[in-house]
Amino acid sequence: MSITVIDYGSGNLKSAAKALEAAANNINLSSKIVVTADPKIIKQSDRIVLPGQGSFRDCYMGIKKIPGLSETLNEFVLVEKKPIFGICVGMQLFAKTGFESQETKGFGWIDAEVRKINNMNKKLKLPHMGWNEIELKKDNFLFSNIKNKSHMYFIHSYEFMTRQKDYVAATTNYGNSIIASVFKENIVGTQFHPEKSQKNGLLILENFLKWKL
């Protein structure tokens, strides 16, 4: 299986690639993991992982700056309908609009917005940083073998908001209920970092690799 981690200049890609490698090893899957932004390689991949660190705007601009990248991703996701996994801001980019620093368009694959977490009149610290429990919303292959209320590692100040509750795979609680994972057809994403969530995180990546559409 060929898996591409999309490299558009955002943060810690090495961890995502290494965690995928470990996950593939755990399930004896022979895999080729490439970190690149080359549209040709992306087109030939079986699945892609879209990481993201920093601001929504910087990440989206980073993708836009690379010729052919956003077109290739749209085709991969909407036309080819092959599996994509967005991590943190990578997942947030699935939304139509982000409101970090200024209003920025996202891919719009899910009817959603990304807005700052309500800090409850400064009662809550931001970023929402550390280990929090996730509440699984429905039976979902991404969380098979994962117990409800498992801990995952979060680090973010903005949250993914959608009225389309069918697409919410898991939530977490920080003052309010916050979307921890989304799922729509061939599109999955987690607000937390599976590549930083020790054994449970690797299990999620294994499930993504095992996914049969």
């Binding site: 090495k14 961890s15 290494k18 965690a19 470990a22 590692y153 680090i155 970092h193 590549e195 930083k196 969530s197 020790q198 995180g201 690797l202």
Partner: peptide, 11 residues
């Protein structure tokens, strides 16, 4: 750091 990040999937 590189070697640690290859083995430890934690922050």
């Amino acid at each position: 750091v590189k070697k640690t990040a290859e083995k430890c999937f934690m922050p």
